[in-house]
């Protein structure tokens, strides 16, 4: 089974920020969506999630900012129950202790509202919610931006383990090609609201065709700086 969307587009204040885009995503695929700030990555992520949900697909979305995912007036426990309900699970059936332990948020007080947790903990809580079930697709938008390196690496490793035996496809949205390169097999490069290149991770790293991919590839690592 393949996920298929066509004609996704978006405009803001009369300006097109996402040109008509069609995508096919194989089940179990690991896709990276990379590009500079403002190239339209998050917009495509949102449009993709909305369209697939309209089609009746189950999609977990970890937005760039936890504020987008969490209601400031509701407790963390409420959010968790809602996530379980959305997947048709009975309350308390998800393996919360394992997920919280792996994401190092076991000390978080679920009775508190989001603002009682640090931003990094909120981000990991949203990731934990996305890992409750086995949706058709998980879209992660800069999932490690608020995390320190040890916690960020542990989070990405948990994600890899979680997806290993599932058909769930993953789309990792990031401006950091170095991060994407280690986690995905296919890369899509965005520039000015369009996907300008799509190829295997290795091809993009070694033989980038477009200026956007070349720039990202050249700057992916601090130690290999072009002058």
């Amino acid at each position: 089974m393949t996920l298929h969307v066509s004609g996704l587009s978006a405009a803001r204040s009369g300006r097109t920020i996402l040109h008509p885009t069609s995508l096919e995503i194989e089940l179990g695929a690991r896709i990276g969506l990379v590009g500079a700030s403002g190239s339209g990555k998050s917009t495509l992520g949102h449009a993709l999630v909305d369209e697939l949900r309209t089609q009746g697909r189950s999609v977990a979305h970890v937005p760039q900012s936890p504020d987008e995912a969490l209601d400031p007036l509701r407790s963390m426990a409420f959010h968790w129950q809602e996530a379980e309900k959305a997947l048709g699970l009975h309350t308390g059936t998800a393996d919360q202790p394992m997920l919280f332990e792996a994401l190092k948020i076991a000390g978080g007080d679920l009775k508190k509202r989001p603002w009682g947790w640090s931003r990094g903990m909120q981000q990991r809580f949203v990731i934990a919610m996305a890992l409750i079930g086995s949706p058709d697709l998980i879209v992660l938008d800069e999932p490690t931006s608020a995390l320190d390196p040890v916690v960020a690496a542990a989070t990405m490793d948990l994600l890899d383990r979680h997806l290993q035996d599932r058909d769930t496809a993953m789309m990792l949205i990031t401006h950091d090609l170095g991060l994407a390169a280690r986690r995905v097999s296919t890369l899509m490069v965005m520039q000015d609201g369009e996907i300008v290149e799509r190829a295997s991770t290795q091809d993009i790293l070694e033989r980038p065709q477009t200026s956007a991919a070349q720039s990202l590839s050249a700057h992916r690592n601090w130690m290999a700086l072009p002058c």
Binding site: P149, A152, A153, M156, R220, N221
Partner: peptide, 14 residues
């Protein structure tokens, strides 16, 4: 060492 290895896992260091 843990920090260094995390940076490698994240692609920040080779």
């Amino acid at each position: 060492k843990t920090l260094r290895d995390a940076a490698i896992a994240l692609g920040a260091l080779e």
